[in-house]
Design a protein around this nucleic acid. Structure first.
Lengths: 359, 359
DNA sequence: GGGACAAATGAAACCGGTTACATATGAATG
DNA sequence: CATTCATATGTAACCGGTTTCATTTGTCCC
């Protein structure tokens, strides 16, 4: 009984926007309607600028909104409209230096369009991705940007059935079920090798990334196609480095055991190039005097090494921002027609590939 | 009329979980209730494990849930319960190498507790922060981790009024209104200077960060307190570097114009140390032979320079994961009692401070 | 004058959950 | 035996929006 009375008072207080401890009570659309002397439907029409509303009425409503400091509740909107203004970015690991810039690109665009970004680290593990997707589905996420590597055909189809727009970064377009954004990995690799050749290299090795990744594969292919007709070419010039710094370091040592006469190395990504640089330093091999070194990706780290690393730069930020743009467009227009965007890469020649003494 | 009939059929189809294009229809709690032959309240009780439910009944409900592949709708839950299982991480810029690791710490813990993380880049601009906070409030965010620098006293109080739990990283505890996590900046600075002295330095400069930041201020103070009693000490040994790579590079050149006899530099963060290293290389000054160099933060980049950089490492990942833990605890227990966590820093001695020839 | 149609508005259903309250049963207690 | 209490369940209100549909009014045209 006592409790009932208390509850009753609490309700009165809520309605009057009074609270003992100074806590703010959010006004609801019904409060606005009451104050403006109209129905909630009309307020909703004013808010969403749809349907017919008389000018005078609109003014009254706007005044009430201002007076109550009213902000529509996004969760209620989400429930009613099944759109939450939230997108998810699933990537392997935000701590991998490749991704922060991309994430920034995504977030900037999302923010500009009034969307919010949920960050998910998959560690490239299928079960983590799945559990994220489950959770995101429950939360009525509007769309997903997928920069992780273990997304399967089945997953894409499932997303499609669930009507969740999807944009994928750097994946093979397996029967092109969703929009894909990637860059010219093959062409970039050829660019890198050509650059090394132009700088006077006579025997070029390649440190490659995980071949499950389409990017790593394409880059390896680009290398192979560029050098296979040279007499010095041999498969043992290609060594795995797992896209990691330590992998690059180890790979370079392995290379120099087999081929001490290498004078150029093309690394499948910048992290491995950094590792390679370290390894070469430990071996007492000078860069670029003895060996020219070039990476791939164009991450910021390439500017802080000594010497600065040449690289084939992808437009990382743009990949993120474009992904967000494409996704939001898909969300808002509802058009699902998948597209493929292939972005250009650019050779960034720095000290690590400076021309050695003219031959 | 025709439309009405179509709608009617659509509803029937919905109820029967049939859809023409293979699109999946999510079952609702009412579907489960109907199938199990109980009320929605009972289903809800089973889901939330609260209230009394008979074992037999529970089984029936669970079976129905499994049969329908039912997943409770998080948005509806959020609306009803005012908890969305979402926290926000507001930081200046995820592309700044300091933050990805912290973000990873936050996300890992959040994920473990079933929470989702929204990423916000404030660029340290007050208006961006405010607009984020507005948006987050509307979305019934459960709590915020604030690693940005422009959070004012007023904002904290407003959050409090709005009942949004808050954990702040690296901020001064201005009348301790929320939990704060920081590390021993002052002590770390003293550690750095002592290390340089032990390594034989006789004249140590300091490149400092923006003095609006409590962290930068404390580190500067630590430097000053450690060296002010030396005869060689003079204020012009302290030069600003804005916590940025280019700032460190410029600062080091400025320093060497005024004090060519410097033999040790303590940088207020690692980015500036990287810039300083670059600057010293350009000046032809050898590290560590001519000048010993140490940074602060312990970001990964310090391991890829040549020579590797000594630094005072903060437990960056732990700062993030602890922040998430504290925040989620606050959210779930509702206890608002603010606490201060000061984490220990550790000296990481690498090649950039290797002892020069014994005096 | 009456039908068609655009403009304006409100009542009520709906989105999919949670929960306060009412009710019913059976066991334990005085 | 009446009372109390733990167990079990359902009804309906509620969270705060959107949207369908009905209704009213006014204008235009034949």
């Amino acid at each position: 009984m006592m409790i009932r009375i208390i509850c009753f008072f609490a309700k009165i207080c809520n309605r009057l926007h009074i609270k003992g401890d100074g806590e703010e009570i959010m006004a609801t659309i019904r409060d606005v309607a009451k104050l403006a002397g109209v129905s909630v439907a009309t307020v909703s029409r004013v808010l969403n600028k749809n349907g017919y509303v008389n000018n005078k009425t609109e003014e009254k409503v706007l005044k009430a909104i201002a007076q109550l400091n009213y902000e529509p509740n996004a969760v209620a909107r989400g429930l009613a409209g099944k759109q939450t203004g939230t997108i998810a970015l699933i990537l392997p690991d935000i701590a991998n230096p490749f991704f922060p810039e991309m994430a920034r690109g995504v977030e900037d665009v999302a923010q500009a369009y009034g969307y919010t970004v949920i960050l998910c680290n998959s560690d490239d593990q299928g079960h983590k991705e799945k559990s994220y997707i489950e959770m995101l589905k429950k939360k009525y996420i509007d769309g997903i940007i997928f920069a992780s590597n273990t997304l399967g055909q089945a997953d894409v189809e499932q997303m499609r059935r669930n009507n969740i727009p999807l944009v994928v970064l750097d994946r093979a377009p397996t029967r092109q079920l969703c929009s894909v954004i990637r860059s010219q990995n093959y062409e970039g690799a050829r660019l890198a090798v050509r650059h090394l050749l132009e700088m006077g290299c006579r025997k070029i090795a390649h440190i490659y990334g995980p071949q499950e990744l389409i990017t790593a594969k394409k880059r390896l292919l680009g290398y192979e196609e560029s050098v296979k007709h040279f007499p010095w070419y041999t498969p043992s010039l290609m060594v795995p480095g797992h896209f990691r710094v330590d992998g690059g370091l180890r790979a370079v040592k392995e290379l120099f055991e087999k081929h001490p006469d290498i004078d150029g190395i093309f690394c499948g990504n910048d992290l491995m190039a950094i590792g390679a640089l370290k390894g070469l330093y430990q071996l007492g091999v000078r860069v670029p005097e003895d060996v020219a070194l070039i990476g791939f990706d164009g991450i910021g780290l390439t500017e802080i090494t000594q010497p600065e690393l040449s690289t084939v730069a992808q437009p990382i930020y743009e990949m993120g921002s474009l992904a967000a743009k494409v996704l939001i467009e898909t969300i808002e227009t509802g058009v699902t027609e998948p597209r493929l965007y292939e972005l250009e890469v650019a050779l960034v020649a720095r000290d690590s590939t400076k021309r050695r003494t003219e031959a």
